[in-house]
Amino acid sequence: MEIDRVLRFENVGLRYGMGPEILRDLSFVIQPHSFQFLTGPSGAGKTTLLRLILMTLKPTRGLINLFGQEVARLDKDEMTGLRRRIGVVFQDFRLLDHLTTYENVALPLRVQGKDEASYRSEVIELLRWVGLGERMHVPPTVLSGGEKQRAAIARAVMVQPDLLLADEPTGNVDPPLARRLLRLFTELHRQGTSIVLATHDFDLMDQFDARRFVLADGYLEIFS
């Protein structure tokens, strides 16, 4: 299925409660099969922007259109339906500590009611690829920061999403591993997934030629 647009923001603004406007008047489009870095100083609102896209925050004003649907008009189940097409790597990972690493990575498939036998080998292969093959039966609590990060990435790409949101996905790993993980994203991109990768890391951005969304003082500038 070909979508003409993955995401469109129109004059979107956001403030938390009565606080200052964190994001002001954002308008942009994310095309299918596109790759963009999202950058900006700490506290600029990168995570906030990703939360808007994931529909866990409502914009204070403006319109968000996701996969051709007006987000404001969706009910909960429709939102869940759209979320199944989005993979997310959270800045704080959000792994479940009472499950094993394997179960965490398989979670998006499990909540869709898929039979474990149907995805087991894919999950294992992916875990091996991100270097967690030996660690898949331990809970995230005993993983290092970098290992957790890789588990979070594996969970996000597991469903081959149409849109991948990655919040500082290489923040906890050394440069060689960061490059390796970036390759996972570029491969996913090559297969048609649109990627939004939030990062501070200019070295990483130099590794791959892509649009850069730069957030500063609540405004967004796009460098192609």
Binding site: G131, R135, G146, D174
Partner: peptide, 20 residues
């Protein structure tokens, strides 16, 4: 910068080489 699990990294690095 959080502690990095060296064993895991070297393991994944060698694996990475094999895969490459």
């Amino acid at each position: 910068m959080p502690r990095i699990d060296k064993a895991a990294i070297s393991r994944s690095a060698s694996r990475s080489a094999a895969i490459a």
